[in-house]
Design a protein around this nucleic acid. Structure first.
Lengths: 116, 116
DNA sequence: GTATCATACCTTACAGTTCAAGGTATGCAA
DNA sequence: TTGCATACCTTGAACTGTAAGGTATGATAC
């Protein structure tokens, strides 16, 4: 009852942003993304597979990603990469992310907003 | 149907953080907080009353805030201010906020994490 | 030969959050 | 007396991430 949060602070929308960012450069598969984010964030962000797979499916359905199956060592991987739509989306999301975080930083840092 | 979002990106936990920040310095009332955040954020962040009032009540119940009723011009306002517990909470939240946003910035900016 | 682990994909139940929209009531201006 | 800004509050809806589970393969260890 000490307020157990299932949707942790400051994480909403972050998975989508990071996934689009990673896939805007090169082709990757789900399991790889999970670990890439963990590594690239210095362990600060760990996305479960329950976040990544549904996100990939949703993004593909929206036309932001396209996928292809590729057999590797007898095992099949599903590789995703961002489409033009996905890159546009990434650009929009990045701008939104900056807008919000800059605004929050301004207030939290006490910089108020100038001699008000 | 184009994916209407009710829980906008990057806003989870932000109201709590901002409210605690404002009330860590001086006493304020709900309606005032709504407008203060709008102004201080340069219109970037606008919290509805449906977000602020429930948040105030929850924070008070958790011991993070304390309130007192104060009549002003025949109208009654409920002023809130952060307690020691609330300041501790603010400190924790701020740290968490930095951790997440720094990590995201690192990836989005393409700085990956090489050569850190 | 079989137990276990890492890989690799996937789904579901749950809980918490914000938003939008509504509701009450006062004081002041037109 | 109509309307608006103030000032408080609640409810329903929708979305999101988490945790936990489920399937199946290949490699490693015993």
């Amino acid at each position: 009852m000490p307020a157990r949060k299932t949707n942790p602070d400051f994480m909403t929308g972050v998975p989508e942003l990071l996934i689009l960012r990673l896939l805007s450069t090169r082709e990757m598969y789900g399991y790889e993304i999970v670990q890439a984010i963990e590594t690239a964030s210095g362990e600060a962000i760990k996305l479960g597979e329950g976040v990544v797979y549904p996100a990939l499916h949703a993004l593909e359905e929206q036309g932001c990603l396209k996928s292809r199956r590729k057999p590797v060592n007898g095992r099949t991987r599903v590789y995703y990469i961002a489409t033009a739509v996905g890159k546009k989306r990434l650009s929009d999301l990045t701008g939104e992310w900056r807008r919000i975080t800059d605004a929050v930083a301004g207030i939290v840092t006490g910089a108020k907003h100038a001699t008000v």
